[in-house]
């Protein structure tokens, strides 16, 4: 194993702290990818893989990712829901690999909703 520099030790400590924060429920956000048949046929698996790849590339450990069933709007799949603590959940529709990474950077990390892809609040029920 290579010798650990102070810098790499600090980085390791930060990473472990962030991962512990995630475990303790102190996630900066949760992203739920909808994984019903309609979602999967429209590309939900690829959307989730792109999201995981981007999280890994950015070294982010305090974003929780999970799958759930169909969001009830099959024609707008793939869909994902972003939930930041203390904020209303936001549903995104017609996603692809590029769009989900933009949602990650701008909303999950940056804190501002990507309005172009977001469903209007409350419109979930109309589908």
């Amino acid at each position: 194993m290579a010798r650990l520099s102070v810098q790499s030790l600090n980085a390791l400590r930060d990473q472990l702290q962030a991962e512990r924060a995630g475990r303790e429920g102190k996630c900066r956000a949760t992203v739920i990818v909808h994984m019903g048949t309609c979602g999967i046929s429209a590309g939900a698996r690829q959307v989730m893989t792109a999201l995981l790849g981007a999280l890994e590339e950015r070294g982010i450990a305090d974003v929780a990712v999970s799958s759930s069933g169909c969001a009830g709007m099959c024609s707008r799949e793939p869909m994902a829901t972003v939930q930041r603590p203390g904020e209303a959940p936001v549903k995104y529709a017609d996603l692809d690999e590029k769009k989900i990474v933009r949602v990650l950077d701008e909303h999950v990390i940056g804190g501002s909703i990507v309005k172009e892809y977001a469903l209007a609040m409350g419109s979930e029920r109309a589908g």
């Binding site: 990473q15 991962e19 995630g22 475990r23 995981l52 999280l55 890994e56 982010i60 450990a61 990712v65």
Partner: peptide
């Protein structure tokens, strides 16, 4: 252990 699978370590 208790590291989540969606963490960078878990994914690796």
């Amino acid at each position: 252990g208790d590291a989540p699978l969606c963490s960078p370590t878990g994914l690796r």
